[in-house]
Design a protein around this nucleic acid. Structure first.
Lengths: 207, 207
DNA sequence: GTCTATAGTAAGATAGAC
DNA sequence: GTCTATCTTACTATAGAC
């Protein structure tokens, strides 16, 4: 019965879900392996072994080690940004209009996300990724920060870029410390402190 | 005349300086190659070719690619720290006693150094270095910041560590922007702004 | 779509003459 | 101390059967 061996059905539903399962298995394995060993130290062989899959499948679905890492990051990033956006939207619906306050709401959601998903957060800020990843990552966070309501009035001068960059790295460093926190309670304190520091910096506007 | 061929003299002075020349040539070449291509992309062959030296000599003097990179960083770091220390000492000799002011003097010297030596500064913050370098580097800057007078009272709680980490990354991000500045004038403005932001953060002490 | 086996490649490291 | 030539290794990436 070849149809059983290959897992096919008339409708093709199994085949479909099998494909999705393979991708999921590879992504999950990548998460484990990369977070444990870092990017450069991890090998494709490790990933496919843990996924119970094969090198060929990995290349079929992702195209290579770099792209696999990137796919993992994009999932993570999207979760981060979705959480932040939703938090901001909720605050808005509750009549919050102060841009700085809205910024803090988004930042808080972002930092909360760094605590849940600590493993991935640490991986992506560790500086160990595919060539050029650091640039892409920094650009993404920077973009996210810059688009914030509180900062929309920024011009394209080097001083305004600095202002955004400082806030970006402040939140980023905060995320790192949150991810490294001992426990939930400690993480919460750190988040509060980070928001406090961000507020201090923003208090005077761009220098 | 073998003594001429090998460059030897009775006193051994030439031999000595020749050795130093080789090391210098390798370090200078490493500076060029690494700053142009980054660490992982650069090959040992590139470095020795530009230095007019050989693979064997590189290994003899430094032990490998990683160690060469590290030696380059240590030179740079030492220059940075010496400049900062001297500036602080000078301010002290001029009767400045306020810890925060002294911190700013040191930070300013540090940022000035990032402008001179921009190429190396960019290299070392680019995130492209030997495995584990990012940790070493962060640790070193963090240590430097933590030892500062203004922060000596910090305890070993996670919140105090955060305070130092935030200031570290603030200065670090500032250094990055300074190194990327268009010209001397722009760099000066950025330095002033960074000091301003650091002052804002420190204004309230640890959160 | 999935897999195994293999090819290809690049670069770091070493040995040993001079 | 310096150099050339060679080795070794480890990995990514592909080819081709099922």
């Amino acid at each position: 019965m070849p149809s059983e061996l290959t897992g096919r059905q008339a409708g093709g539903a199994w085949q479909w879900s099998r494909t999705k399962q393979t991708k999921r298995a590879l992504l999950d394995a990548a998460r484990d392996v990369f977070t444990e060993q870092g990017f450069s130290n991890a090998s494709i062989a490790d990933v496919v072994e843990r996924a119970g899959s094969s090198v060929g499948s990995l290349y079929h679905h992702f195209g290579g080690k770099n792209e696999l890492f990137l796919a993992l990051w994009q999932d993570h990033q999207q979760a981060h940004e979705t959480a932040a956006s939703q938090a901001v939207a909720k605050a808005r619906s509750e009549e919050e209009t102060d841009p700085t306050a809205l910024f803090c709401v988004g930042a808080r959601a972002y930092l909360e996300g760094s605590w849940q998903r600590r493993d991935l957060a640490m991986l992506f800020v560790s500086g160990d990724g595919p060539p050029g990843f650091e640039l892409v990552r920094r650009g993404r966070v920077h973009e996210w920060i810059s688009q914030n309501d509180a900062l929309l009035k920024l011009a394209d001068t080097s001083l305004d870029r600095l202002y955004a960059a400082i806030l970006t790295s402040l939140i980023g460093e905060g995320a790192r410390e949150v991810a490294a926190a001992r426990n939930r309670r400690s993480a919460g304190q750190i988040i509060d402190a980070v928001i406090e520091y961000a507020t201090r910096v923003m208090a005077g506007g761009p220098a």
